[in-house]
Write a protein that binds this DNA or RNA. Structure first.
Lengths: 159, 159
DNA sequence: TATGTTAATGGTAATCATTATCAATAAGAA
DNA sequence: TTCTTATTGATAATGATTACCATTAACATA
């Protein structure tokens, strides 16, 4: 359960790292803390800056490397919202009630999380996943659903 | 109806251009022809190379500019499959029976189009769009649904 | 607890897709 | 045919991400 550990206690993700043979380092711990404490949709640079405040020795390359690792481990999701930089957010497994999708403003880049119809979506997604896995012999790990359009602030400006 | 015009006849998209005040140029015509004749998921470079075969004077910048124009006009969809380059495919309005989504192999980059459950998806999407438009006052133009995983060829290699 | 192996790091250069710039060209209206 | 100006092609610039490499620090072992 992210963010609920006693200070100094073993973090929830320590076993995941150990199991893969990965070392638990200061940069990795802080990057995960930052991801846990922040609202989603952070770019690599956002994360770098936040980590830098508490750990100024951090290097940008380490942020990218760690994020790639976390994405491969399935602990973090990587998104592309069309503005040329990737965004990252904690996956938090399936247990958290935070499963959501995104509404992206193509004018200002604002991102709105929504959870409406999530249950129906999940049902359809499950069904589709099952069918597609069989039909195409594809091992599905993940999915994205995104809506693009203009947010309330922008729909006046540009039509 | 794309690809069904007599040689030399006015193309289906001429009016769309005229209506917007855009000029009908050789590069634009060829780019649209290439998009029409090819299977989807072409990168800008793919398109550049295909156009270059029939029109060697084409410049890469023109390809990018034209694609951006077509995307803004809604004639072309732009996708990101996570490999660092954008992919483009003709939208063909809503009339064509080609509405599909993508299955993306995160190992080899292979892309499979699928149309399974499209009707159910469309229904859910419509419902969601309507709800979200109202709730967030968001003018939705577009959506993407993508599944990520390992294709049959890759699921052995990497687990 | 001290030590040795080697994964991980930080700084920086390199890469690569996409954009911006600008003089030359060609659509299309008159 | 002429004129206006959108469009083009070549190339430089940008910006995110990755590669490289010498140094550092996890952590298994003694």
């Amino acid at each position: 359960m992210p963010g609920r550990c006693r200070k100094g206690a073993k973090k929830w993700w320590h076993n995941e790292f150990r199991g893969c043979g990965y070392r638990i380092t200061i940069p990795r711990q802080i990057i995960l803390e930052v991801l846990d404490k922040s609202e989603g949709h952070l770019s690599a640079e956002d994360i770098f800056l936040k980590v830098h405040k508490v750990y100024p020795a951090i290097g940008l390359a380490t942020v990218y490397r760690t994020l790639e690792l976390l994405v491969n481990m399935g602990l973090v999701f990587k998104f592309d919202f069309g503005d040329g930089r990737a965004r990252y957010e904690l996956a938090r497994g399936a247990k958290e009630p935070s499963h959501h999708h995104h509404l992206i403003c193509t004018n200002c880049g604002r991102i709105i999380d929504y959870t409406d119809f999530i249950d129906e979506e999940i049902e359809l997604i499950k069904k589709t996943e099952k069918e597609l896995s069989q039909k195409y012999n594809f091992a599905i790990k993940n999915h994205t659903i995104q809506f693009y359009g203009l947010c309330d602030r922008c729909s006046g400006d540009k039509k």
